[in-house]
Amino acid sequence: MTDRLENMALVMPGLLLLGLAFILPVLQMLVLSVSGPDGFTLEHFTRFLSDSYYLGILWRTVRLSALITLITALIGFPLAYIMAKSGPRLRLWLTLIVILPLMTSVVIRTFGWIVLLGRSGMIPSMLRDLGLVGRSFSIIQTESAIVIGMVQVLLPFMTLSVLGVVMSIDGRLEEAARTMGCSFMKTIRTVVLPLSLPGIVAGGLLVFTLSASSFVTPSLLGGSRIQVLAGSIYNAVTQTLEWEFAAAQAVILFVGVALVLVPYLSVAGRRNG
């Protein structure tokens, strides 16, 4: 019985912190999103869902997040596969290359992209000098800039998620497939890819969630005209000071994330038993 007491004492601070400083704030936000001057109201939600400006923001957020997820998967899977098949030394270096940006502040990485993609930045100047684009060409403050920056920010998450799964695939399966007449590409397609799918799906959900909820990179690279949902929340909190409206938008984001994550978590949880 005292063993249980000891364990409860060890886990209690964590649970208390979580209950008071995590669950309670989220609940507070949920409550505020339906509060008006006269008590319960859904006006903040109807305001968002009936205004084509906000619906456009929502659609852009979903569209960009999907595109970013797709691109990170297209780069992340081959990257993780090559990492898994490299020798331990090379793999360590590649891991470092993936983790270093991951552990660098998003603000700093976005700053780097501002320099590279800016009006007189290196990449647009190069493209102009090569004559590939016109004089007035610009990347910054377009959706392309957001996608480029976000892919770089989120690629490590996808790569590490896929890497974990690819590393656990028994290499003999590929050898077996080759002895049964599969070409290299066919082996990737029929053996490696299906077995990596759990990692790709998990990474994809993570990337989608993070990209739908980030505002630092989109607002710095996209500017004020190309607004995404999280940026709109940030504006409502800091510029217009409409906290209830911000809470309502956060709830909409929350519901969207839950719609994506909950089915996955319950399936994955059941599979892990």
């Binding site: 989220v26 936000m29 505002f215 984001l253 994330v257």
Partner: peptide, 29 residues
């Protein structure tokens, strides 16, 4: 511990919830 699976899920849950949602909740509370 009873429900240790639930407890570890709870302790890991801030990973899943987007920070912006938590941030606004924390500010409000």
């Amino acid at each position: 511990l009873p429900a240790s699976g639930l407890m570890s899920a709870a302790l890991l849950s801030p990973l899943v919830l987007p920070t912006i949602i938590y941030a606004i909740g924390m500010l409000l509370l």
